[in-house]
Computed example of a mutant assay.
Amino acid sequence: MTTPEPGGGPLLSATGLHIAFPGRRGAPTARAVDGVDLDIKGGEIVALVGESGCGKTTLARSLLGLVPPTSGAVTFAGRPLDYAGRALKAYRKRVQLVLQDPSGSLNPRHTVYEAVAEGLRIHGYAGDERAAVAEALSRAGLRPPDRFFLRYPHELSGGQRQRVVIAGALVLEPELIVADEPVASLDASVRGEILALLLRLRDELGLSALVVTHDLGLAWNIADRVAVMYLGRIVETGTVEEVLTAPQHPYTQALLSVLPEAPGDPVVLTGEPPDPSRIPGGCRFHARCQVLASGEAERAGVAGRCRGEDLAVLSGRGETQVACHWAAAGGAP
């Protein structure tokens, strides 16, 4: 099975994905992912952006095969994801996870060599293990690699530890990595280095990536395409330039308004995101929407629809799309 070429069909695709968790002691079911279509092409970096609790990590874990969907499907290279043990193990060799906290994802008792070689041993690698580990460390920017073989995580800087985690993913030669807040725990001086590394891996290896983040500035620096998630659904998607320079959804506008370089005053959203076990009717953002609160939606004639009419799930394809009655009515700039 070959990886789809950039610009061709999707490498990874989610269609109609729903993930629900039963409540305890009769509490309502939490709809963590509530209808998502998302495509990632070969050689493409997609940023999945949103506040904490919006369902980003649950969606990412489902795409990795760690959380089976309640309904809907995940396909990889045109084939449905098989959750049987052997098939899932083979899939996880091709799709690797990079966690946000390198200190928490590295065993403090294992050397760098052992940490990177672990995946090879799990998957029964029959080649030259030492050469594979050295190549992965080198690709991750730890050179000369043999200088790091016998070092322990506590002997490394935060950036070096994150590079070890990335090397542990690269050693299996995956086609896609899922990076969950890959630079959130790093100093600002190191973040740019790790982002540059991910871009270089995309360019040199044709590696695809889903980068999960709350940081739109990070998305601007690394992504080809961005998907903005709110309360279990993607509410706006498109190329990073289109979405971040001309956002149409009020939620995206609010997220962008707090960036240091953003023009005008920050938009302060009232309250916390609603409970996923009690998703409101109509647009799921309407209770916090600054456009509705200011009367702009009323003037555009869509306030009633905002409060009472649900919006369709956006397609996972690459074109710019927005789930917003006000934007659809021409209210967005």
Results as ranks from 00 to 15, higher is better:
108 P>Q: 10
160 Q>L: 10
136 A>W: 01
163 R>H: 10
199 L>C: 11
162 Q>I: 03
185 S>K: 09
126 A>Q: 15
179 A>C: 15
208 S>F: 02
151 R>L: 09
159 G>C: 13
193 E>G: 11
156 L>S: 14
192 G>Q: 10
193 E>W: 01
196 A>Y: 09
191 R>E: 02
114 E>V: 02
127 G>R: 05
135 E>P: 04
139 R>D: 03
128 D>G: 12
122 I>G: 09
116 V>F: 08
136 A>R: 02
138 S>Q: 06
192 G>T: 13
116 V>C: 10
207 L>K: 01
141 G>P: 07
175 E>S: 15
155 E>M: 13
149 F>H: 14
185 S>H: 07
137 L>Y: 03
148 F>R: 13
160 Q>W: 12
142 L>F: 01
125 Y>V: 08
203 D>K: 15
111 T>A: 03
172 L>F: 05
201 L>E: 07
126 A>K: 15
202 R>M: 06
156 L>T: 12
144 P>R: 01
124 G>Y: 13
118 E>V: 05
138 S>H: 05
179 A>H: 11
138 S>D: 05
179 A>Y: 04
106 L>Y: 03
117 A>N: 09
138 S>K: 01
166 I>F: 11
163 R>Y: 03
111 T>H: 05
115 A>R: 01
185 S>N: 12
180 D>I: 03
121 R>P: 10
118 E>H: 13
165 V>C: 14
169 A>C: 07
115 A>E: 11
122 I>L: 15
106 L>P: 08
210 L>C: 12
208 S>R: 06
120 L>P: 14
107 N>S: 10
116 V>P: 06
181 E>M: 09
190 V>Q: 06
115 A>H: 06
115 A>M: 05
115 A>N: 02
150 L>H: 15
156 L>A: 14
148 F>H: 10
141 G>C: 04
188 A>E: 11
108 P>N: 11
130 R>E: 13
196 A>K: 14
132 A>W: 04
120 L>A: 08
191 R>V: 02
208 S>Y: 03
126 A>N: 11
151 R>V: 03
168 G>W: 08
171 V>R: 03
108 P>A: 11
158 G>A: 12
161 R>H: 09
198 L>Y: 00
188 A>G: 03
127 G>Y: 08
154 H>L: 13
139 R>M: 08
133 V>R: 08
204 E>F: 04
142 L>M: 03
181 E>F: 06
133 V>Q: 10
190 V>H: 04
106 L>E: 05
187 D>I: 10
134 A>S: 13
153 P>C: 14
139 R>A: 01
161 R>N: 13
165 V>S: 15
172 L>H: 06
146 D>R: 12
182 P>R: 00
148 F>I: 09
142 L>A: 02
130 R>M: 04
115 A>T: 14
152 Y>Q: 15
128 D>N: 15
136 A>C: 01
129 E>C: 06
159 G>A: 14
158 G>Q: 14
182 P>T: 00
109 R>I: 06
130 R>L: 04
197 L>A: 12
124 G>I: 12
